[in-house]
Design a protein around this nucleic acid. Structure first.
Lengths: 358, 358
DNA sequence: GGGGAATACTAAACCGATTTAGTTGGCATA
DNA sequence: TATGCCAACTAAATCGGTTTAGTATTCCCC
């Protein structure tokens, strides 16, 4: 890294050195701050101000490029028009998609948001909500994060379910998600299925696994303990899925299909399977979970349970704003369930004729 | 989507209904707001206050869980400890990685940040910097975005180069980046290379293409016009690379290597090549650019020019904070150049013996 | 011509901190 | 005894808006 050129400090904007304040605008107009404020904000008090004057005020505001200072406004109104968003890691496909939905809706509604990522560090998970509230956020959205305490502001959790009072949980219909995947594999003739469970810390791990077991039971599929693996480690690279799949292969237990906890681990699993000489999907079918962007980018494309992540983000934003703008004692939804989709791509196919798999 | 349960409104926190203000804390202690403020902020004025009293103040603050209101503080100090970050799209691997670096450094230094994404819409690119400044950000970071105007606050652009006064540009050493890729391919015996240029709107397109041409000239590689394609469309899916590669194949012009504008288009290109029966890397070697997460997740892994995106984010954050905290008339760096890396994975290999290609 | 209402505003309080400019009381020194 | 100085604070201004509570003027109607 090197510096090549350097320049002078930025010059002040066209109009003047400082930006225009309400006071200076009012003085310029020969009116009081109050009158100007009424008109600018179209407050009901402005109705006694003649249209002519209103026009003058608005025009001057436009010409001087007056922009009210949000800090001052927020302080007085006790409204910051700001939301706090807590995610495990920004650069992960999962959180990024949810955030994209959140941002879309919030900005549309005139809100801004702070993002913080905790990378699964307990002390940050505990501290960040406080810091955000100190920054006067009006609501919190936690993505894939199990917050330990409630908050003094409306809190919406996306896949973070824990029964904390004051929280609205946005959760996937896991039973249906598991059923979609298992049915797909079953119809393709698979019976010997391997599974990769999520890490202990992931808020989805337990409920998703329960749903898988229920679906398997209903479909009459037996789950062999030796074909059940669990991700370990905090990173979000396919490496984790790769390692765990190597163990799976080493066990020698035959299987023709693998249902991974998420797309990332499925991608790692595919790598391990290929290295072991298994073709996808001819020898082993692989199903992921989430449908992050990279899932479609795989060769072959990854068959996966689709969480409507972007939509969940929008829903979270909508819900948190609704709760903020609802009368204080109004009841709020404790749970909002969204439906999964199932995206069939090239990583699954008919089960091989028996005798092929291991 | 369905609501299943609902609950009562969140209860106030343990200690009391409202959060503690400086005033109430001072009253509780029988002291003035000023005294308490001095001690809490360890301001120089606190030196005349005896240690005993300081202890009492700090203890009370802890017990009542006093947290100063940032809005009030910011308004008075004219410092918001907030940065604005402008990106094209949050859920893209490129921006996400840069943001991850930005976030890391900013939070470490006690700053928060607002993120806005413009999705290449001109009016948003123009308006968002104003909105952010209205929110009193102390600095701006623009990622892969060519802002049309300067700002009244320090502005750092990551890969957004345009010579606007007041801007520090963080740019890749494109000459070296192109040379790394071209040398790699040349050493593997490739001579007939195809290229995918970036979209017109992308701030990197022009300079990167110039660098490729320069590198080709230096290495004695001839660039055939019919083997040069350009991405079109605003989406950031591999689809764009896929379509353009189909055109490339349709042209009938033989080639053994493809250097794509970025990893996303390289992934799409691989898909198109495979569909046309070309094996990667046996028939065609493919090189991407950026090294986003999905690049490593491909099968085979994508050989690519690595932009140190996370580090560029950290650098951007460092630079913007330095500029904020530097004396006003201090000169600032206009350009900071970072060095690319080159990551060899499975998508490149020796050029096939002549007669194979096409 | 006096009362009431509407019109067109303004003065001042307020939000919750920080910060400047004092004030008070005690002690030492001239 | 007055003078200055230090320690230990406090009162009030300030940041830039919003909002409440008025005020002055005009008009209308009886």
């Amino acid at each position: 890294m090197a510096r090549s050129k350097s320049g002078a400090t930025p010059q002040p904007r066209k109009s003047s050195g400082q930006s225009v304040s309400l006071k200076s605008l009012a003085e310029h107009l020969g009116l009081s701050k109050a009158a100007v404020s009424f008109v600018i904000n179209r407050s009901p008090a402005a109705k006694s101000i003649p249209h002519r004057t209103q026009e003058l005020i608005r025009q001057a505001a436009r010409e001087l490029n007056y922009r009210p200072n949000y800090l001052a406004r927020s302080l007085r109104q006790q409204r910051s028009y700001t939301i706090g968003v807590v995610v495990p890691e920004i650069s992960e496909g999962y959180a990024a998609l949810v955030m994209s939905g959140i941002e879309d809706h919030l900005l549309q509604e005139g809100y801004f948001y702070f993002v913080v990522s905790h990378r699964h560090r307990e002390e940050l998970i505990k501290e960040y909500p406080h810091l955000l509230q100190q920054r006067a956020v009006e609501g919190l959205i936690a993505v894939d994060t199990a917050l330990s305490e409630g908050a003094n502001v409306p809190l919406v959790a996306v896949s973070g379910h824990r029964d904390v009072p004051g929280v609205t949980n946005i959760v996937l219909d896991h039973a249906r998600a598991a059923m979609l995947a298992m049915e797909h594999l079953t119809k393709l003739g698979h019976r010997r299925m391997a599974f990769i469970k999520g890490q202990e810390f992931s808020s989805d791990t337990a409920v998703r696994w329960e749903s898988v077991r229920a679906a398997a039971a209903e479909l009459g599929i037996e789950i062999k303990e030796r074909l059940v693996m669990q991700l370990e480690g905090e990173s979000s690279s396919p490496e984790l899925g790769y390692l765990v799949t190597r163990k799976l292969l080493a066990s020698g237990e035959p299987f023709t299909a693998l249902f991974a906890f998420n797309d990332i681990s499925a991608i790692g699993a595919i790598q391990a399977l290929r290295e072991a000489g298994r073709r996808i999907p001819e020898d082993v079918s692989v199903v992921g979970f989430d449908d992050i962007q990279s899932a479609a980018f795989q060769n072959p494309g990854l068959t996966t349970v689709r969480q409507p992540l972007r939509q969940m983000g929008v829903l979270a934003a909508e819900t948190v704003l609704q709760r903020i703008n609802a009368p204080a004692k109004q009841p709020y939804p404790k749970e909002i369930i969204v439906e999964p989709g199932f995206i069939v791509r090239g990583s699954t196919g008919p089960a091989p004729q028996s005798g092929q798999a291991d």
